[in-house]
Design a protein around this nucleic acid. Structure first.
Length: 253
DNA sequence: CGCTTTTGACCCGCGC
DNA sequence: GCGCGGGTCAAAAGCG
């Protein structure tokens, strides 16, 4: 952990770093994936498997893993200041969330399904991700003017849940949290899906994030220069969920 | 008609 | 024990 990083015992619920106001970043409460447009994956350790053009910013650090709750944090002396050394061309937007103390406790107790959260800069509250969801609740949460919506996967044998809420700090950002793992495939035809690049699941692949054209991530994601590893229509090779998201050359295990 | 959304009620864990 | 807050339930309404 780098110098100046607030201690984890700090109960603040999230950190936010944004360079150039770009589109998407993700963080996990179990494993972490972070980067603009879901470009980066850090499950196996910092920089593990990252494409050469996306070296991990120096201000991102990983905490020592506890038994079941790995947390990646950003090294900064202030949650509101852009840390020095951000390679802005590479890291157009980084937001790193940290799980709250309460969530950490739950994770350490091992009573929760793996959870996976990401932030999306979009005006659409409920992002299309290729699965069908049924809303089963909505709740006004403390310290936020925006309600939190609760969804369950409609598949009969799938108990994956999803929470969607807008960031109180930046209403343009939607925070989506998945809990559990799908036991089935997406319902959307592959031809209608944009596959998110370099998303590596080394363990407990949480879901297949799927962005449909004109939806979800927003114009910045669609307008930016595609990365070399990005593919919009790879033919599935029958290796399960990973194949829908990660080019085989990006994987190590 | 079947499925989804809405929304108030209820439950439960936690802190005081 | 009590209040608070988050999460879930379930009946009613809406929609295609």
């Amino acid at each position: 952990m780098e110098e100046g990083l607030p201690p984890l015992s700090d109960a603040s619920s999230s950190w936010k770093f944004s360079a150039d106001g770009a589109s998407v970043s993700i963080a996990s409460l179990h494993d972490l994936y972070v980067g603009e447009g879901l470009d980066w994956g850090l499950p196996g350790g910092i920089g593990d498997g990252l494409p050469p053009a996306f070296d991990l910013p120096s201000w991102v650090a990983e905490e020592p893993r506890s038994s079941d709750a790995a947390t990646v944090v950003a090294a900064s002396s202030s949650s509101d200041e852009r840390p020095g050394g951000i390679p802005s061309e590479k890291a157009k937007s980084i937001l790193v969330t940290r799980n709250t103390s309460a969530e950490r406790v739950v994770l350490q107790k091992g009573t929760r399904q793996p959870r996976f959260a990401f932030m999306t800069k979009t005006e659409i509250d409920h992002l299309e991700d290729g699965y069908r969801w049924r809303k089963y609740g909505q709740k006004v949460v403390k310290n936020s003017p925006f309600p939190r919506s609760y969804y369950r996967c409609t598949h009969s044998k799938c108990n994956v849940k999803k929470r969607v809420e807008r960031s109180s700090q930046d209403p343009s950002i939607v925070i989506t949290t998945y809990e559990g793992q799908h036991c089935h495939h997406t319902v959307s035809p592959p031809s209608q899906q944009i596959r998110l690049p370099a998303m590596r699941f080394h363990r407990n692949p949480p879901m297949i994030p799927v962005i449909h054209p004109g939806q979800a991530i927003g114009p910045r994601y669609q307008e930016r220069t595609p990365l070399p590893m990005e593919r919009t229509s790879p033919a599935p090779t029958g290796e399960g969920l990973l194949d829908d998201v990660v080019p085989s050359g990006m994987r190590r295990r």
